[in-house]
Amino acid sequence: MNQIVNVNDRRAVTLIEVLVASALMVLLTGIVVVSMIVHARTAYANLNQERVTESARRLIQNISADMADSQSFQVQTGSSNGDTLTILKPDNTFVSYRYVQAASYPNSIGENVIVKNLQSSPAVTTGTVICRLVSPVGKLPVFAKDSQVSTLLNIHARLGDRSNPSTNVDDLWTGRGFQSFLLNTSVARR
């Protein structure tokens, strides 16, 4: 069966038309791609920020729960591995929170973690990892007894989402980069 194609009235596409069509296509594609990139960056930043904040909340809730009914607590600082918070529970058992500094430089977060274990010895560096990517704030210890009230525990730490230097500041608009949450709070024992 023959195919009938009448091309008598057919005309070619001019160069101008091709250029205009190309320009429009590029413009539209650009708009869509930029929108998707912005959306993806925002989602990425939001998700990481949420994880970091959740990690901080988990640490505070754990310590608050253990401190609430404790008999006493003590903080050991100055060791090469960081700080240890040891809490004496009502049943005379211990709970320890320990900041373990794995990286050579505190500001390059690396795999610095805070672990929780049921030991009283500050030498124990293993346990349940409560927070990852932790760095101290300046020269402040992560855990410290308040200088005026012995039943008050002060906590200072920066929790990040990756091992960049913590000075690599970023924000939610640009997305990629260092997202962090600065823990600067106190927990009371009664």
Partner: peptide
Amino acid sequence: IAIIAAVSIGMYASSVYTARQN
């Protein structure tokens, strides 16, 4: 073009709104 632009602007506005909420 207007439809595609409107959809894209909507996506962008959605991103901005999400970022501000965060």
